[in-house]
């Protein structure tokens, strides 16, 4: 994390510009995760210090919201939508296919740090159900074949 000094500076800059108080904690965490990609202990301590609140408060908020993560994610984050519209159109089978193919469970990262498999509850593209997102790019009407296609697309990179 030491060589992340620049990133911490960027975060510090943000905290200063919005004159963040403890009420802006969630906005600050969003920005921190955007800059650093995850929120390990050091980051939480840093934020607690800047906002002058206990670390326990920061930790409490980070663990409450599913959007925040304390673990480093893979290079490619595969999000399978498990919202209702996707579920009734077989999203659980898509999830299973990714799990089988990558040898990891929902929420885990492959040992080589390439893929993280996780789930979302509705990205609002229900018309394309079932939906898979990879680093924000959306793949609609997913089938078992799409799973193969997606993995091929990113495995090569």
């Amino acid at each position: 994390m030491e060589n992340d000094k620049k990133k911490f500076d960027e975060l510090d800059e943000y905290i200063k510009t919005i004159h963040a108080t403890e009420h802006e904690l969630i906005a600050v965490l969003h920005r921190a995760q955007h800059i650093l990609s995850y929120l390990p202990r050091e980051v939480q301590e840093f934020i607690a210090d800047r906002l002058q609140i206990p670390v326990s408060k920061v930790y409490g908020v980070v663990t409450f919201y599913s959007f925040f993560t304390m673990e480093k994610k893979g290079k490619y984050v595969i999000n399978v939508c498990l919202g209702t519209a996707c579920f009734v159109r077989g999203a659980d089978k898509i999830m299973k296919a990714f799990e089988d193919r990558l040898g990891i469970k929902n929420g885990e990262t492959t040992p080589d740090g390439k893929f993280t498999l996780s789930s979302l509850r509705c990205v609002g593209a229900c018309g394309l159900a079932p939906v898979v997102q990879v680093n924000g790019k959306t793949y609609g009407n997913a089938t078992i074949e799409t799973v193969e296609q997606i993995l091929k697309e990113y495995e090569g990179e």
Binding site: T84, A85, F87, R121, G124, A125, C126
Partner: peptide, 12 residues
Amino acid sequence: DEGDPGAFMDRS
């Protein structure tokens, strides 16, 4: 917040 998964009225 539109939390109901499978609903997208407010978003639209």
